[in-house]
């Protein structure tokens, strides 16, 4: 649904992004992750047709961003980093205006505004001036604006920045509800957001692509095996030997106070491990996944400079 190929953007001598190639499938929510000034906003601006790229290709919803700019703009809803609001308009008249410039037919305009208000939860403020509504509602109005013409692709640049925890949760739930019907790409530097909302990520740093793929794919590419760390009431060689009898297990090793169990990707031995512990009368204090979590992944990718 979104695809880039060797995308490069230079501002004079400054290289903002370099040879970026990635792909986002239809109906998924994809995160764009990277430290500040990594090139996230630039990439999004190119995809939405706000900025031209210096080199490379990009396509959205099957249209070329450079050659079929109007068709691309028609199929994208975009929330820029600074929410583009006119404070002197009411929420309703603002959404009406956006519907007009996004070429929603006049007969369907009212329905489109109603729908966007409904989805973004703006019923209580729809008649109020934008200047007088809270930060959270402004952000929601920004998202409603991006949804107004029911676009196939929605691009959100830092949608939860500057909000309080309750508002962040609301916006995240809102974004999750868009999945399936829309393809969503959002940029963020909050890792928890990716874990909670996204199916996959594109990680960029200093304008270069560091990794991309679904969260599971990325985890796989960084460790050969799936597995768990186990903390039991007793940890000794005898226990370890017991585990080595467990069929399917590739490795069992002691690591500090924990036992590391590994098995090949694709088969999940967690239940078998649990049953085994019950049988052998071993009490489980803690069990956690061996696969790197997103924080570890991100830090390793960004600081280690591992390119895929």
């Amino acid at each position: 649904m979104i695809e880039t190929e060797q995308l490069t953007k230079k501002y004079g001598d400054l290289v903002a992004i370099q040879n970026l190639s990635f792909k986002v499938d239809e109906g998924r929510i994809w995160g764009m992750l990277g430290p500040n000034a990594a090139g996230k906003t630039t990439t999004m601006r190119i995809l939405t047709g706000y900025l031209p790229a210096t080199a490379g290709r990009a396509s959205v919803a099957g249209f070329d961003v450079f050659e079929q700019a109007e068709a691309v703009k028609q199929s994208i809803g975009y929330l820029p980093e600074t929410v583009p609001l006119y404070p002197e308009m009411t929420v309703e008249s603002y959404l009406g205006f956006v519907a007009e410039i996004k070429k929603v037919p006049a007969t369907r305009k009212k329905a489109a505004v109603d729908r966007a208000v409904q989805i973004a939860g703006l019923q209580s403020v729809r008649k109020r001036l934008i200047r007088n509504i809270s930060r959270g509602y402004k952000q929601r109005t920004g998202i409603a604006q991006a949804l107004i013409h029911n676009p196939r692709v929605i691009i959100l640049d830092e949608p939860t920045i500057g909000l309080d925890p309750a508002q962040i949760k609301e916006i995240r739930d809102l974004i999750k509800s868009l999945k399936g019907e829309h393809t969503v790409m959002l940029s963020t530097h909050i890792l928890a957001e990716v874990k909670e909302v996204c199916d996959g990520v594109v990680i960029i740093n200093e304008g270069k692509l560091m990794a991309s793929g679904s969260l599971e794919e990325l985890a796989r590419s960084f460790s050969q095996n799936d597995g768990v760390y186990l903390k039991l009431d007793r940890t000794d060689g005898e226990v370890l030997n017991l585990f080595r009898q467990l069929p399917g297990l590739k490795e069992a090793a002691l690591e500090g106070a924990e036992i590391r169990l590994e098995w090949p990707w694709g088969q999940d031995l967690r239940t078998r491990v649990l049953k085994f512990c019950l049988e052998k009368n071993l009490e489980i204090k803690e069990m956690r996944s061996l696969a790197m979590n997103i924080e570890e992944l991100y830090l390793r990718i960004v600081s280690g400079g591992m390119e895929q």
Binding site: T48, P84, Y86, P87
Partner: peptide
């Protein structure tokens, strides 16, 4: 106001 980004996209 940053609204030109809305207009130009």
């Amino acid at each position: 106001m940053g609204t030109e980004e809305l207009l130009f996209t």
